[in-house]
Amino acid sequence: MEKNSLNASKIALFAILTALALALSLLEQMIPLGMIIPIPGIRLGLSNIITMFAIFYLGAYPALLILLCRIFLLLLLSGNVSSFFLSLCGGLLALLVMFFLKRWAGRYFSLFGVSIGGACAHNIGQIIGASLLLSSKAAFYYLPVLLITGTATGILTAFITSALFLSVDRSRIFTRYHLGSKSVR
């Protein structure tokens, strides 16, 4: 099986992961985290689990594809353009940072470092996006709080993701369906 070939099982897998990420995005919109910490766009970052899974098991390009599909579908479902823009800025920066951290994953960073870095990068990306939207740097006021919440949500998603990785490895679904190589962790 060629590494980059897009076979039917891979397309199906990408679709499932996109649907899962979308469902997690919708789920966390129902969690009123903004009531406790009133910051525009604050969230648990549960869909980051899928991005991390895609980065570790499928590579950067499929991860980007799934991310973009999820964000675009969320726009169609919610119709919220400003949150679409924030998700896009946050998601792309998070993906970039997680990919680079993962490159060093074996040596310096475990899943926890990747997850925390990704969550904080997502929040920083959102602040940059908000600054562009508002044409003001005022949103950087939220940076310290968002760095702390990013660390906390990063640790939370790392626990969930490591459980996911364990069960995926145990099921051997990747070797059974020729879904590409599992990355070294």
Partner: peptide, 12 residues
Amino acid sequence: MHVKKGDVILTV
């Protein structure tokens, strides 16, 4: 999943 040095440094 073991926490590595880089994780701690990054968090700090």
